[in-house]
Design a protein around this nucleic acid. Structure first.
Lengths: 140, 140
DNA sequence: GCTTTTCCTACTTAACAGATAGGCTATATT
DNA sequence: AATATAGCCTATCTGTTAAGTAGGAAAAGC
């Protein structure tokens, strides 16, 4: 029931891009340094975000990454689901729900569904902008 | 972000004991058969529940297991946390919270906390009795 | 004393997390 | 045109965990 470093780092990465946005591309190396994360590992993670069009990349000197959209346009759920895969607690409540023969008459399914909805209720309402605002409130 | 078979089977196991309770011990082999789970694996799982005092064991012929308390006295959270360990999405929101140097000024922490509370809000309110009732409602 | 059932421990297999490593490609600057 | 800088891509490694399998010891009812 854990969120892996992939998802957590992706979130901090996006937050870092949002916090440090000055219109010019931000180097992954700088993000890695600020966040205390291996830059090579971050490269792999941002590649996922890049392919999904969440960030824009600029190659060469003075290159780096920029958010494609405004912070309020990204929810934590978007970022986590992209990097983590589904956030569902069990396979049978996922979207592509491969049908389980026990499903009919399975009450634990109802519980998993409640958990899934509770988690979604949080991550789908918290945006990157909220995180930025919280960060600023912390006097940073 | 998944709940493993240990936790899921434990829940089905407890539910099976609750549903089939007639005052006499229930053999693990019968539960395994009804639930379609390896009995050897279930043995290991019920051993956890037994050591925690959630079930009472009776050895020898006519032996088996019984719930120690009434179904309404067990929450899904108790059973899942016992078998899964913490349900927290990240280590830093767990009870024993080994302090993270980044914690002060960490906004993702606030998100993890919200997720944690949302999950707890579900599993700590749903009891084994609820599951039994739901099961009966399903006409089974 | 035999059978049934729980109890206990060790082992196996596969998958995944969490990186590390190294070279290739694009491009801004000189 | 050359060079340095940054992203891009793929392979590899290591340790841990999930999910079971296996086999026998110990208790207790008949």
């Amino acid at each position: 029931m854990k969120i892996s470093t992939r998802g957590r780092y992706a979130l901090r990465l996006m937050l870092d891009l949002a916090m440090n946005d000055e219109g010019t591309p931000i180097r992954i190396k700088d993000v890695a340094e600020r966040q205390g994360i291996s830059d090579k590992y971050l490269e792999q993670i941002i590649s996922i975000l890049n392919k999904a069009g969440y960030v824009k990349s600029v190659r060469g000197p003075q290159g780096g990454y920029l958010l494609r959209k405004k912070p309020e346009d990204y929810t934590a759920g978007m970022i986590l689901r992209l990097t983590e895969g589904s956030l569902a607690p069990v396979a049978c409540v996922e979207e592509d729900a491969a049908d389980c023969e026990r499903q009919k008459g399975c009450v634990t399914y109802l519980l998993w569904k409640k958990i899934n909805e509770a988690v979604s209720g949080v991550v789908d309402t918290v945006t990157l902008k909220d995180l930025v605002d919280w960060q600023k409130d912390l006097g940073n």
